[in-house]
Amino acid sequence: MDEVFKALADASRRALLDRLHARNGQTLNELCDGLDMTRQAVTKHLGILEAANLVTTLRHGREKLHYINPVPIHQIGERWIKKFERGKLAALSELKRQLEKRDE
């Protein structure tokens, strides 16, 4: 579990997860495209995400594809959030979303 929190405690790595969330199953080249990070940095961050089991890689033909793996985050949710009334949290998130939308 420590690895998950450490992996998430970095904005670049969260950005990589966001990119995979937007489009799952990307190659390293696709992930690097348009990012302000060197290829080496992206590779290093992906290694940390994979070690924390937040990213899974698999070979598809000649390509190595990266997939977001939300299972550890789900487990964090089950352990710490669900106990504390997810319904109310969902209502608060929705309220925040609505209020912020009005500011746009």
């Binding site: 799952n24 199953g25 089991n53 899974t56 698999l58 033909g61 997939y67 299972v71």
Partner: peptide
Amino acid sequence: VKNFKPAIVYTIYI
């Protein structure tokens, strides 16, 4: 199976 591409890939350690 070669014609199929994974859309969801989840890993868990047990």
